[in-house]
Simulated scan of single mutants.
Amino acid sequence: MSSARFDMSEVRALERHLARSVPRTRQAARAVTVRGAQNIKRDWAANARSTSGRHARHYPRSVSYDIAPYGPDIVMATIGPDKGRVQGALGNLLEYGSAKNPPHNDGGRALAVELPRFEAQLALAAERGLAWGLA
């Protein structure tokens, strides 16, 4: 019967690296999500200012966002008009339109602009956080 010996030092080094990296990467992902939500909120309100007209002049100020954690690895941003604010209840009508009004798609356009930036920043945060030998 023969016995084999394994050098586990590199496995232990990887374990220590991941133990330090994963929390930092989670924190960076949350920061990217917050920044993305702020950008979408800002752009949505700017789009709404240019399309909502005089009848919905308070609507752009109703756009807000909330950040909510859903476990240790999921952070979600909810962005849109707050129905509790002045003219916030007009959000569905202005965004999606009606039988007599075309959709403005202010939020959809803001999301389309932010999505590639968000994805790139999230990928960068993951690469930096999990890169072996750089932590």
Rank of each mutant, 00 (worst) to 15 (best):
M1D: 07
S2I: 15
S2R: 15
S2A: 15
M8T: 10
S9Q: 09
E10L: 14
E10R: 13
E10F: 12
L14Y: 07
H17L: 05
L18W: 00
S21E: 04
R24M: 05
T25H: 03
T25K: 02
R30P: 11
A31V: 14
T33C: 15
R35D: 15
G36W: 00
A37L: 11
K41Q: 14
W44M: 10
A45G: 11
A45V: 03
A46K: 12
N47P: 01
R49A: 04
S50L: 13
T51P: 00
S52N: 12
G53A: 10
R54I: 06
R57E: 12
H58W: 12
H58V: 09
R61M: 06
V63N: 07
V63Q: 06
S64P: 04
Y65S: 04
Y65T: 02
Y65V: 01
D66S: 04
I67C: 03
I67D: 01
A68V: 14
P69M: 10
P69W: 09
Y70N: 11
G71F: 05
D73E: 07
D73V: 01
I74Y: 07
M76N: 11
A77Q: 05
A77P: 05
P81C: 05
D82C: 06
D82F: 06
D82E: 09
G84N: 10
G88E: 05
A89T: 15
L94M: 01
A99D: 09
N101M: 14
P102E: 04
P102R: 11
H104C: 03
D106Y: 12
G108Y: 01
A110Y: 00
L111T: 03
V113I: 15
E114H: 08
E114D: 14
E114T: 08
P116R: 11
R117Y: 13
R117E: 09
Q121V: 08
L122V: 12
L124C: 10
L124T: 13
E127W: 13
L130D: 05
A131F: 09
A131C: 09
A135E: 13
